[in-house]
């Protein structure tokens, strides 16, 4: 499939069946090697990746908002600088990921269109609000922490451009997670009010962060195929367990509790047990009825629409320059 030929157009490519291409693709997957944009790939593989990579990109872009909410109010200049850099990193991640998705033949304009029309999904976690400064800590520690558990295995995903983007993203995410942990540690060891602010925030973010791994394996219809294609390496429940095992000891260092009375070390399993999650809440937010779905989407749409005249000006200017240089060459 020559995806690149379609990149300039606002349409997606059509896959033509190619027996040699399919044999080569199967070989690559069987050998756990990388599929590159110039390789033939099954349409379902391409679609799965476009969906996953663009959702990931959208999540980075929408994810700028809950943290951007505190840039103007960050309580020290150092924290303000760290937060600004972090939100800027997220924009950068969005850009790499859109580029990775573009190598599959889907134009960025189409992905943007799907996002602002509400057709495309993004991580539900960003539909929760950030009423307190401590949420900057919880997002770093819990949300970025969960994202890392999800994303580290993606550095070995079978699609080359995605895997390579993830390597760089994971490095920055692990830095973000440490920053979040440090914000909470500082609050937890600070004044009584700061400690309470940290605890209240962790109470709100704990369950939504655990739901970031997606529904339980039994209810996750796309997982098996993604695992067969070496896109996904571990199941939702395996990753969720790994995350809980990571954050329980960290919460002890923080001096904060996790809002689940069922958390208990299970000697036999070698893992922490934890309580049932409220999956009705998960599906409510997924369906667009979370606390901030409408706000996030509206903000993105407004920024895009109000920026239209700027993008048009840039395009018109580029065209003007092109004509000028053509004229100069002809003369």
């Amino acid at each position: 499939m020559a995806a690149s030929a379609n990149m300039a157009r606002n349409t997606e490519p059509e896959t033509v069946e190619d027996p040699d291409g399919r044999a080569r693709f199967d070989e690559l997957i069987a050998a756990d090697q990388r599929v590159e944009p110039t390789d033939w790939m099954p349409e379902a593989y391409r679609k799965t990746l476009v969906r996953q990579v663009s959702q990931h990109a959208h999540s980075e872009i929408i994810g700028m908002q809950p943290e951007g909410n505190w840039i103007t109010r960050a309580p020290s200049l150092k924290r303000k600088a760290i937060l600004m850099a972090k939100v800027q990193d997220e924009a950068g991640h969005g850009l790499y990921l859109y580029s990775a998705a573009q190598t599959l033949g889907t134009p960025r304009d189409k992905m943007t269109e799907d996002l602002i029309s509400g057709k495309a999904k993004y991580s539900s976690i960003f539909n929760y609000p950030t009423p307190t400064w401590a949420d900057m800590g919880s997002i770093g520690w819990l949300v970025d922490g969960a994202a890392i558990c999800n994303q580290v295995p993606l550095c070995r995903a079978s699609y080359g451009p995605y895997a390579r983007a993830m390597v760089r993203i994971c490095k920055e995410e692990s830095f973000h997670q440490r920053q979040g942990f440090e914000i909470l540690l500082h609050l937890s060891r600070g004044t009584k009010e700061q400690h309470a602010m940290a605890q209240e925030s962790v109470n709100r973010w704990y369950a939504p962060a655990l739901m970031m791994f997606g529904p339980p394996d039994a209810d996750s219809p796309n997982s098996a195929q993604s695992m067969a294609w070496n896109i996904k390496r571990f199941s939702n429940d395996e990753l969720r367990q790994r995350f809980v095992d990571m954050i329980v000891p960290q919460s002890e260092v923080l001096g904060l509790t996790l809002p689940d009375p069922d958390i208990k070390w299970n000697e036999e399993r070698g893992h922490y047990d934890f309580g049932e999650l409220d999956w009705d809440e998960f599906y409510e937010v997924l369906k667009g009825r979370g606390p901030a779905n409408a706000i996030r989407l509206e903000r993105r749409r407004t920024a895009h629409e109000e920026g239209a005249w700027v993008r048009e000006a840039a395009a018109a200017y580029a065209e003007r320059r092109r004509q000028q240089s053509e004229k100069a060459q002809a003369a």
Binding site: I61, M64, Q65, G68, I71, T72, K80, A81, M84, A85, V87, Q88, A91, G92, G94, L95, Y98, R299, T302, A303, E306, G307, A308, V310, R311
Partner: peptide
């Protein structure tokens, strides 16, 4: 300038204005 982050006309400008602010 910090206000512009996540409100710029293009993602590239979110990054650029964020960089200048930083």
């Amino acid at each position: 300038l910090g206000w512009w982050i996540a409100r710029a006309p293009e993602l590239e400008e979110d990054v650029a204005l964020g960089n200048i602010a930083l």
